[in-house]
Design a protein around this nucleic acid. Structure first.
Lengths: 137, 137
DNA sequence: TATTGTTATACTCTATAACTATA
DNA sequence: TATAGTTATAGAGTATAACAATA
C-alpha cells in the first residue's frame, strides 16, 4: 500500500497545507475576514453579479450557510444584495468597490506560496506548475 | 507578478484541496468524526501518550481549544486522559484500542488522493512525489 | 512567578429541517 | 409542485481572557 507515488504526494501536500494554516489565518485576520467570508469574496466576481445559490455552489456548501456569510459581508460593506429583475425569488450579489479592493488583497495573500514552495529552484517550480496544470487542466 | 511559477503552482494546489473538501467531509462523517477530532487522532501516537499541550502544538491551536476536542474524543471512547506521573498539572492522552482502529481508518481515508492526482501517469506521480519530498525535506 | 489545563464568552461555520414567497 | 432564500436549532471550531492547581 505504500508503493503508491500519487498517495505519497497527496500526503505531503496535505502536510504542506496544514503547516500553512497559521499564515493563512493571520493574513485573513489582518483583513478582518473569517475563512468562508474570504472564500465567498474569491468566488464572487466584481464584474458579474451572481445569485446566492451560485455562491453556495461555488463554496460547495448549502444555501442556508450562505445567508449568514453574506449577512456578515454585507454588514462589512463588501457586498450588496440586489433583487433579480426576472425572478423575484432570486437575490443577486454585487461586490462593492470596497469589496473589490479587499477581494484583491485576499487573492494576493492566498496566492503567496508557503516558504517550502517559494524556496523551490525555478526549474522545479516550473515542473510542478506544468504538472499541476496538466493534472487539473 | 503573474510570471511566478511557484505562485501559480500554489494556486492550483489550493484549488485541488478546495475541490476535495466534500470527499474529506463525507469520509469523516462516515467515521463519525468532526475535522479537528480526526486531526487530533492523527497527531496522537497510540504508542506514545502525550500531554494535552503537545496535542495543541501538533494541531497548531490554543490549549483551550483542545479541551473540547479531547472531551468529545473521550466521550466517543477513542482517547483517555491520564494523570502524568511527574507533573501533576499535566494530563497525558492515551489512544484506546478502538481509537487506534479509527485512527488507522482516518489515515487511510485522508491518504487517498483525489481523482486528479490518482489519474496521474506513474511517471508524473513519481516526479511530483520526489519534488515534494525534496521541498519538504 | 510561570505553566497546564479548564472555564467563560462571543462569534463563525455546518447540517438539517421547516418556512415564505415566488415560479 | 418545485425553487430561492431565510429562519431555527444544535453541534463544532476559534480566539481571548480569567482562573485553579501546581511548579
Amino acid at each position: 500500500m505504500s508503493g503508491n507515488a500519487a498517495q505519497e504526494a497527496w500526503v505531503l501536500l496535505t502536510e504542506l497545507f496544514f503547516a500553512d494554516k497559521p499564515r493563512r489565518a493571520a493574513a485573513l485576520a489582518e483583513l478582518g475576514l473569517a475563512p468562508m467570508q474570504a472564500g465567498a469574496l474569491q468566488v464572487l466576481d466584481p464584474e458579474r453579479p451572481m445569485p446566492m445559490s451560485a455562491l453556495a455552489q461555488g463554496l460547495l456548501c448549502d444555501n442556508s450557510n450562505v445567508t449568514g456569510i453574506v449577512d456578515r459581508l454585507e454588514a462589512a460593506g463588501l457586498v450588496q444584495r440586489r433583487p433579480d429583475e426576472h425572478d423575484r425569488r432570486v437575490k443577486t450579489l454585487v461586490v462593492t468597490p470596497k469589496g473589490a479592493e479587499v477581494r484583491a488583497q485576499v487573492g494576493e495573500a492566498m496566492a503567496t506560496p508557503p516558504p517550502a514552495l517559494a524556496a523551490l529552484p525555478a526549474t522545479d517550480a516550473r515542473v510542478l506548475r506544468d504538472l499541476l496544470r496538466r493534472a487539473l487542466g
